[in-house]
């Protein structure tokens, strides 16, 4: 476990894997991935996705949860470009009650911390749909700089919408500890949700 200020980073397994079957079919996932076609993800798709991310040498999938253990969502970095030391980052706030909350911001800060302070990346890219204001606000608070607008780049809900591009350089990152001190994060005191129902184990093969 990697301990943050309002959230902790944990392996993406157990309850997270169960929640992902729901999360991967919800708005937060589609928005974070700019996933315009939003085909339904079956249980198998979800399993395969987790497996692929386990094996992915240019990316990673990390769970993040509130200090009381309540799972919030997924922190993702991907498409790491070794030569240039850059990668894309996304935060999926699976439990929508945390959308815009400082827990979600701390998730982003912890992801940036990992990418810069452990993985030694040089630059991080992030994209945002223009109407995803909570995410844009979090990117700005984390220090990301707006670097451009891809005009009418994405088909979205009957229209063609812009895509906002953001970037953050390692040299601009003051370090997690200092960044958190500047931001004075506030916990949102959201009630932890009940544990998800464990799926029935497949019956043992008759011998």
């Amino acid at each position: 476990m990697l301990e943050g200020t309002l959230v902790d980073l944990v392996p993406f397994e157990d309850d997270f894997a169960i929640y992902l079957e729901t999360w991967m079919n919800e708005e937060a996932w589609f928005r974070a991935h700019v996933w315009e076609r939003r085909e339904p993800h079956t249980e198998d798709d979800v399993k395969k996705y987790i497996e692929n991310m386990e094996k992915n040498e240019r990316g990673g999938l990390i769970g993040f949860q509130a200090k009381n253990g309540d799972p919030i969502g997924a922190l993702i970095f991907d498409h790491e470009w070794t030569r240039v030391r850059k990668a894309e980052v996304r935060v999926v706030v699976g439990d929508s009650r945390y959308e815009g909350a400082d827990e979600a911001l701390d998730g982003l800060l912890m992801l940036v911390r990992y990418c810069f302070e452990t993985r030694n990346l040089h630059r991080l890219d992030a994209v945002a749909l223009p109407f995803h204001e909570t995410w844009i606000e979090h990117l700005r608070r984390a220090g990301f700089v707006h670097e451009g607008t891809l005009r009418q780049h994405i088909r979205w809900d009957g229209d063609y919408v812009d895509l906002e591009m953001f970037g953050l350089l390692q040299s601009e990152w003051p370090g997690y500890v200092q960044k958190v001190a500047e931001l004075s994060l506030q916990p949102s005191d959201i009630e932890p949700k009940p544990k998800p129902e464990k799926k029935e184990q497949k019956e043992a093969q008759p011998s």
């Binding site: 030569r83 240039v84 850059k86 630059r123 890219d125 670097e147 607008t149 591009m165 970037g167």
Partner: peptide, 22 residues
Amino acid sequence: LEGRERQATLVNGEWLDALTYG
């Protein structure tokens, strides 16, 4: 010109911006 990603590539030891056009 729609975007300028700062220091998004390295050429002969120097960081350079990447430009996106549309």
